[in-house]
Write a protein that binds this DNA or RNA. Structure first.
Length: 564
RNA sequence: CGGGAUGUAGCGCAGCCUGGUUAGCGCGCAGCGUUCGGGACGCUGAGGCCGGGGGUUCAAAUCCCCCCAUCCCGACCA
């Protein structure tokens, strides 16, 4: 491609709307342009990168026996009403009406649609398993499309949906997808981790996330350097740090703590460390029942974990009257109202002589000991690990790493097939709902994740597999006919070799061309300038700082050596 | 949805507090000239509903009210 004929508007300065690297660089390097909040256009150079990502994903999916199709972006409300998600989804789903006032939505995902497809066409166990995938635009009207291009509302995703006879068959397909995803991420050339993910209240059995490591990533991964334990912070298990001295069990005592409602107040008033105070979180479930969770005062309750344990979605008590009735702020496990279910986090398990609320305004107990003074209820892990916590398995220090989720695979089970009546006739002559799995990869997100992981002061440093062009030819003086003639020849030669080359034939000063090539992140630069005129040598520079001089004949060898 | 901030030329910004010439600067863009190896220089020029609406005033980019858009933080706690 000749630069002079290309649509590649680079920017010297980053637009003010771009806060994070990947966003700023994708605008500066002429990959994307913003149309509205969370909505972007892909310019020719950006599209080249997207297509590389797509090609890798497509190749590996095809190799795994999955079948590509295109599903509609606009979907009728009917299917969503049947699955129950028309109401569940909330404002994140972009809804619209057609001219006849019928309800539609822009597909935020396509489970309903493919399941409907399976209902129409998959009739027998002999047709199974089937794994269908699409690479398409999806739309989610995010509450807040933050982090620029990373969390866009309109985005390109590869989603695959598998239909199996039973759990066993699903497991085989799932394992295959797991392997396929690893291969894809490796081919992309990005550093990544695979973690088990939370399936949430909705259920589902197994789920894995593929995380590309990056400093500004939204996901926090907990990793044990010693035994390789790996999990998302939100569902990681750990051994709470035990820095407290062994001590004698003291006598329970009720103390006056006027006005001390928060943990911090109590700690200050009693001059006690936070870790010695039991934080008792009182929550209400969707079932209207009250649940109390006890944890160390220096920790925070994870509502998701608590909800999972309680078996109902929990939320803070907002009813003022109820809050007063329960003496919130002074609530505790000793002589608490009987109809409350208690849970205790492992963070208080090995502690003695704790402070708890006395269920009476302005009073707390000190030297409370579980089992002796109160029933701890059910033990569990209701908090997330933080700095200083230890690996549950081996006791080593846990490390925290940040990353960006680019892929997510999970076993869906029969949720959608049952609701949408998608059944097949099994060998035993019975009609059974499909056992489903679904496997997503954020195509457009990979582009920004790659930039986020790989860039330097000069711009993007694409991995080999994603670079939009492999070689940039830079002619330092466009006024010199001899140089131009030779550069044209080199360009033609590279084209003949099938190398993706960007020939910077613009009549600009050399410095501009150097900066642009660097910004765009082209791995190899061939420079034709005074060295060429004097000695017939091309300067070959790599994006990572390597430099050498080549004769025309050396080009082939050089490229062979720098083949990814 | 709550909080904070910002909207002035394609991009980055100043001007606004304290209302008053023809609204500026840098980059970019067009023309001419000089330059020509790491984002050159000079001259000339094009390009603005000062986010939108309403109000105050003799007079509004500037003061007041409403709306919209964009960005950031939060939706985390006894």
């Amino acid at each position: 491609m000749r630069f002079s004929k290309y649509y590649l508007p680079t920017l010297k300065e980053a637009p003010s709307s771009s806060e994070i690297k990947s966003h700023a660089l994708s605008l500066r390097a002429g990959l994307t342009r913003k149309v509205a909040a969370g909505i972007y256009v892909y310019l020719p150079l950006g599209l080249r990168v997207l297509k590389k990502i797509e090609a890798i994903v497509r190749e590996e999916m095809d190799k795994a026996g999955a079948l590509e199709l295109v599903l509609s972006v606009v979907q009728p409300s009917e299917l969503w009403k049947r699955s129950g998600r028309w109401d569940q989804y909330g404002p994140e789903m972009f809804r619209l009406k057609d001219r006849n006032q019928r309800d539609f939505c822009l597909g935020p995902t396509h489970e309903e649609l493919v399941t409907h497809l399976a209902y129409l066409d998959l009739k027998s166990y002999k047709d199974l398993p089937v794994n269908l995938y699409q690479i398409q635009v999806k739309f989610r009207d995010e509450i807040r499309p933050r982090y620029g291009i990373l969390r866009a509302r309109e985005f390109i995703m590869k989603d695959a949906y598998s239909f199996c006879r039973d759990e066993k068959e699903l497991d085989t397909v799932y394992q295959k997808m797991h392997q396929t995803y690893k291969r894809i991420t490796e081919r992309l050339g990005l550093e990544y981790l695979v973690v088990e993910a939370e399936t949430g209240l909705i259920g589902g059995s197994v789920s894995h996330e593929f995380i590309v490591l990056a400093q500004d990533g939204e996901e926090v991964i907990v990793q044990c350097g010693k035994c390789n334990y790996l999990a998302k912070q939100e569902n990681a298990l750990f051994k709470p740090f035990q820095g407290l001295e062994p001590e004698k069990t003291l006598d329970l005592k009720k103390v006056h703590t006027p006005g001390a409602k928060t943990i911090e107040d109590v700690a200050e008033y009693l001059n006690t460390p936070l870790e010695k105070i039991v934080k008792t979180m009182v929550l209400q479930g969707e079932d209207k029942k009250i649940y109390a969770f006890m944890l160390s005062g220096d920790r925070e309750l994870d509502l998701e974990r608590a909800s999972k344990e309680a078996g109902t979605s929990l939320s803070l008590i907002e009813d003022r009257g109820l809050a007063d009735k329960l003496n919130l702020g002074y609530f505790g496990p000793i002589a608490a109202p009987v109809d409350i279910a208690f849970f205790s986090d492992h963070s208080i398990e090995n502690k003695k002589n704790l402070v708890v609320g006395a269920n009476q305004k302005d009073f707390h107990y000190i030297n409370a000991n579980h089992c002796r003074d109160f029933n701890p209820g059910r033990w569990g892990s209701f908090t997330s690990p933080k700095k200083g916590d230890l690996c549950r398995g081996c006791g080593s220090a846990l490390a925290f790493r940040k990353g960006i989720e680019i892929g997510h695979i999970f076993k869906l089970g029969k949720k959608y097939s049952e609701k949408l009546d998608a059944k097949f006739l099994d060998e035993d002559g019975r009609l059974k709902p499909f056992t489903m799995g679904c496997y997503g990869i954020g195509i457009s997100r990979i582009m920004s994740a790659a930039i986020e992981q790989l860039s330097d002061r000069g711009g993007i440093t694409w991995p080999e597999a994603l670079a939009p062009f492999k070689v940039a030819i830079i002619v330092t003086n466009m006024g010199d006919d001899r140089l131009l003639t030779e550069a044209d020849k080199v360009y033609q030669k590279l084209l003949d070799m099938g190398i993706e080359v960007l020939y910077d034939d613009r009549d600009l000063r050399a410095g501009v061309k150097f900066k642009d090539a660097e910004l765009i992140g082209i791995p190899i630069r061939f420079i034709l300038g005074k060295n060429f005129l004097a000695r017939g040598l091309i300067e070959a520079e790599t994006r990572d700082g390597g430099k050498e001089e080549l004769s025309l004949e050396d080009i082939t060898g050089f490229l062979a050596r720098h083949q990814g």
